[in-house]
Write a protein that binds this DNA or RNA. Structure first.
Lengths: 105, 105
DNA sequence: TTGACATGTAACCGAACAGTTACATAATGA
DNA sequence: TCATTATGTAACTGTTCGGTTACATGTCAA
């Protein structure tokens, strides 16, 4: 299982992306995230575990609370993949255009 | 169901991303894609349907063959989301750094 | 020390997924 | 016309997922 697989899988669920967007506005406790996204505490806990495994978030312990924030490297893997995909596609299109141009000479 | 949900869901499966990467090298028939990715024809057909619904690929009929290629707009939705995510996070980090700087004056 | 609180893990369940085989549809070419 | 080829759809199935409730762990505060 590649890292990109794990990251894209994590990004595949709307609630998990919503949690990531939420954490852009600042770190938050697990319980707060559960309320904000209308899901049970165990439910959000599982989503948070998925995001953590993907390296998208980091947890910090403060007393009996677990506070989550974005990983500084968050989503860079997926972003790199998509950007590479985008770039390669563009060059592929460019080659196609050139080939067509050559044909029509 | 938002479009971003559909796109990220489509990107969430390794075979579907492999098919996208494959299509960067040029368009291909469904049967060829099945062989190349070691999956049955109906199996690849379902993956292709998912990718098509997400707007990531386009099909073209040539006789009795269906030839698939990347959509010119492929993955732009997901790419935009990730880039926005990235940008927002950077500005959030910037604000954090500024606040810390302010505190330490 | 003890009760309350915050969270994660275990166990469970219905729904969705990803794969298969069998069948339907449509186009080729002999 | 008719057998063949390319593909999609239908029907089915084992597995995974996403959600819940119940329980365990660990920390605070009185």
């Amino acid at each position: 299982m590649e890292q990109a697989d794990i990251v894209f899988y994590a990004l595949g669920h709307p609630i998990r992306r919503a949690v990531l967007a939420r954490l852009q506005t600042g770190e938050a406790r697990a319980g707060v995230l559960a309320i904000e996204h209308d899901i049970s505490r165990p439910g959000v806990s599982k989503h948070l575990a998925v995001l953590r495994r993907a390296g998208l978030i980091i947890e910090r312990k403060s007393g009996r609370e677990l506070i989550y924030r974005l990983n500084p490297e968050a989503a860079s893997e997926a972003r790199d993949w998509l950007n590479a995909f985008w770039e390669n596609r563009l060059s592929a299109l460019k080659q196609l255009a050139e080939a067509r141009h050559e044909r029509e000479k």
